[in-house]
Design a protein around this nucleic acid. Structure first.
Lengths: 155, 155
DNA sequence: TATTGTTATACTCTATAACTATA
DNA sequence: TATAGTTATAGAGTATAACAATA
């Protein structure tokens, strides 16, 4: 495998070099993307991590804190402080689970729904894509899901 | 501009939705990429930030700490601790600048060159691209530079 | 025994402000 | 006056370990 078939565009450089280019650009874009999102959610009065937590919650189906930790791929102990902040801001409410009294489910308040919509808007909108034509954008959309095996983690 | 021409793939969703898809995938990929890189440089005995600092240094042209801060897009005060660690590890040496005694230039040692090459290898290599054909990889390489206006910052 | 949420604690990363030595 | 490097300090993010309540 990985035999260097002569492709028109990779002939001179090879797959490894093209891959390095792609990774370098992805790194650059990731930094710009995160910076832009962090600035915008800060303007909404949230810390970046709290904003990501709020965005990950399901307003229609309250989830236990443990589930949120899984969604955010972080330890449960972190969720406590994150939810503390969201609760102080009146965006989330802790409610007991009737079926398992160990659990506390995270209920998004009405105010929380509105801010969560703002966060999602911030995360979706991006000035980063202004330089792409409609066709290029479509190509990119079809190609990116193939990076990192769709939605699977890398290890 | 931005008139909704009926493209084959964007007809049903529109440019905004395609953009949101792209941003969502970029966010996912960015997370996986950073996590993979951070794990690998940690295995090299470096913290992620120290690894990025070492990678940003030029072994052939020692730069002042201030320049490194600019490269990393962070405050100069952070560079002190980063370089402290690299110096303790024997990878970097602080040297006075002959022409301006305020400056301290950052010299990459021989050991530093080797580790820096490892870091670059880690940053370039990635299992994330295994699902792409050579042609898809090439397309991606040609498309990604157009995201975020080439190399320009977003604001 | 195992799990949830919490607390205590520590480390990394980053920023601001003030200090010093130069320019 | 302005700049480079440093120091002190603070806040955010994340991790591990131990605890009480519950399963």
């Amino acid at each position: 495998m990985a035999h260097p078939t002569r492709h028109a565009s990779t002939a001179g450089a090879g797959r490894a070099a093209a891959g390095a280019d792609v990774v370098r650009h992805l790194t650059r874009i990731a930094g710009a993307l995160r910076q832009a999102i962090d600035e915008d959610v800060t303007a909404l009065g949230l810390t970046p991590a709290a904003a990501r937590a709020l965005a990950a919650l399901d307003p229609d189906r309250p989830m236990p804190a443990r589930h949120l930790a899984d969604e955010l791929a972080c330890d449960r102990s972190n969720v406590t402080a994150l939810v503390d902040r969201l609760e102080e801001a009146g965006l989330v409410r802790r409610a007991p689970d009737p079926t398992d009294r160990r659990l506390k489910t995270l209920v998004v308040t009405d105010a929380g729904r509105r801010v969560r919509a703002d966060v999602h808007r911030v995360m979706a909108d991006s000035r980063l894509l202004a330089g792409l034509t409609d066709g290029e954008l479509t190509t990119l959309r079809d190609l990116l899901p193939k990076v990192s095996g769709g939605a699977a983690p890398i290890d």
